[in-house]
Each structure stands twice: as C-alpha cells, then as structure tokens.
Design a binder for these strands. Structure first.
Length: 294
DNA sequence: AAATCGTGGAT
DNA sequence: TATCCAAGATT
C-alpha cells in the first residue's frame, strides 16, 4: 500500500472521532442516511438529526411507508431539503428494487436518487467494507496537497481524482475502506481548508505542499456563494413556515416572509416544481396526506 | 460545465 | 460584521 495510506491509517487508528455511524455493527441504511445528511452539512449539525431518523425509521421500509413530507419535516434545518425528498425516494426504491436492503453493487447504488460518485462509494466502503476510491472534498484537498503540492483541489471531482485515490489504497478490502475513512478524517480534522495543522499531520514529512512551504492562496478556494437576498434564502423561509405547520397554510402566511412578490412567487414556484411543496386548493403544504381536521 | 440548491459556526 | 465553507448531486 502507499506510504500515504499507511501513515494516514496509523494516525486514524489513534485519532478517529467516535462517530455513531462508524459503529461496526451499524447497518448500511443508517450509513446511507448519514452520507445524505453529511452532503454539504457539518458533522455536529448532523448528529442529533441522524439519531432521530435512525430511531424513527430503522429500516428503509419504515421511511418508505411515510409521506415524503414527513421526511422533509424531520430534516429540520439541515439545509438543502431536496436531500430529504431524495432520501425518501431512496427508501422507496430500496423497497421496490432491492427487497428493502441497501444494494452492494456500485451501479445499483448510483441508480438511486441523490446518490452520486461520492455517496455510492462511501456507503459501499463504510457499510460493506468494499474497496472503492471514496473522494469527497476532504480527500481531494489532501491529495492536492500531499501528492500534487497544490494548496487546494479543483472545483469538482474528476475521473483523474478517482484514479489517483484508487492508486493510493491498499489492496485488501477492509484496509482500503479504513484508509478511505482515514483520508477523509485527515482532511476534516487536520488538513483543513483555511487553517491546516501541519505540525500534527502524519504526512508532514512527505507532503509535497508542505515541502514547498505550505503557502495558502490569498483568495477563497471556491467561489463564495451569496445567500442573503437569494431565492435560496426565500425558499428556506417559505419551507420553514410549512415545516412547522400541522396542515395546509394560507397564502398570506407565506406572503409575510418576504416583501418582494416577484421573488416570493418565483421561490414558491420552484418549491412546487421540486415537489417540496404541494398546492391544496388555495393553500399549500408539504407533500402527503392532509390531517382529517383540515 | 457552470449555476443552483440551506443553514449556521468559525474566523 | 462579512466572509468562508462544510462527508455533493443535479441539470
């Protein structure tokens, strides 16, 4: 195996955080839930919601039996609520296509809604111990620095990234899966975007970027994303109203969240198009059955 | 292939 | 206070 993998795994053996979805006895479904929630959302915010979901919907069939609106509501404030709907879609697909189980084949994983190159391989590696290059933003940053001597990676995961990381993995399946978790942990805990802690890094002697001075770029490594005043913010405000409502709400209750009627309408229309919101006559609600007293 | 899609903690 | 960014996927 590569020196990068052996050094990083040895460090991980001692320093891995004790995250509940890393319990070796946890099932593939809880792992899949964690991977969805962790898409663009920090660990600390995922933890409490993940616990709720695993307790409430211990198997895919449990979630599939509910309206997608329940998933959206239980998603809470994790952000990007389309993930909740796609995860509900996953549960349905698992029941319909895979006997209520999480499949063990990459092509079957990639065919699930909301499951892309990262999530598919992460679940197969972490839940089933398979050998796949698991490439997220952390791993790409570690590879960019340690291997290429660059301060950060490109904007998106490329086939070249997958090939490189695959070449770093040990041959044995379980060791490869552990190395993948170790690379991610290193990027999340030490080899961070803005303030890397190179002194504590197991790769400090071999890292190409450190040997060239570890100079951080002046500007942001990604294009900073605006939020205030965007449709995204308005969608969030609208959905927050519908999440806490117990039934359909009047248009007026939605109108008060944003002053500009043009943008408000555009945001609501996009939520309707996404299926995150459903019209109920003159009113609106999350998707699903309406309680009898409405 | 660049834009879009939430939210909140850290700096 | 404003900016950056966090276990991505989709179109």
């Amino acid at each position: 195996m590569s020196e990068l993998a052996s050094l990083t795994t040895a460090w991980y053996d001692v320093n891995a955080r004790d995250l509940p979805w890393r319990d070796p006895d946890i099932g593939a479904w809880p792992v899949l839930i964690s991977e969805f929630m962790l898409q663009q959302t920090p660990v600390v915010r995922v933890l409490p919601v993940w616990r709720e979901w695993v307790a409430r919907w211990p198997a895919p069939a449990d979630l599939a039996a509910e309206d997608s609106g329940e998933a959206i509501r239980a998603w809470g404030r994790l952000g990007y609520p389309r993930r909740a709907m796609r995860l509900h879609g996953c549960a349905t697909a698992l029941v319909e296509r895979h006997g209520g189980q999480v499949p063990r084949r990459l092509d079957q994983m990639l065919a699930l809604p909301g499951v892309g190159d990262y999530t598919a391989r992460a679940v197969l590696a972490f839940a089933y111990g398979q050998r796949h290059p698991v490439v997220d933003t952390n791993v790409r940053r570690v590879a960019a620095r340690a291997v290429h001597g660059l301060p950060d990676a490109g904007a998106a995961t490329t086939p070249a990234d997958l090939a490189l990381v695959e070449s770093l993995l040990p041959q044995a399946e379980q060791a490869a899966a552990r190395a993948s978790a170790a690379f991610m942990e290193l990027g999340a805990v030490l080899c961070t975007a803005r303030t890397p802690r190179c002194e504590a890094c197991p790769l400090r002697e071999t890292c190409a970027w450190r040997r060239s001075g570890a100079v951080l770029p002046a500007g942001p490594s990604r294009k900073p994303q605006a939020y205030a005043g965007t449709d995204r913010q308005v969608r969030g405000l609208l959905l927050a109203v519908l999440r806490q409502a117990t039934g359909p709400v009047e248009r007026l209750a939605l109108d008060v969240v944003w002053p500009d009627p043009v943008q408000r309408t555009r945001a609501l229309d996009s939520l309707l198009a996404d299926g995150l919101v459903v019209p109920r006559g003159e009113r609106f609600s999350l998707p699903g059955r309406v309680p009898a007293d409405f």
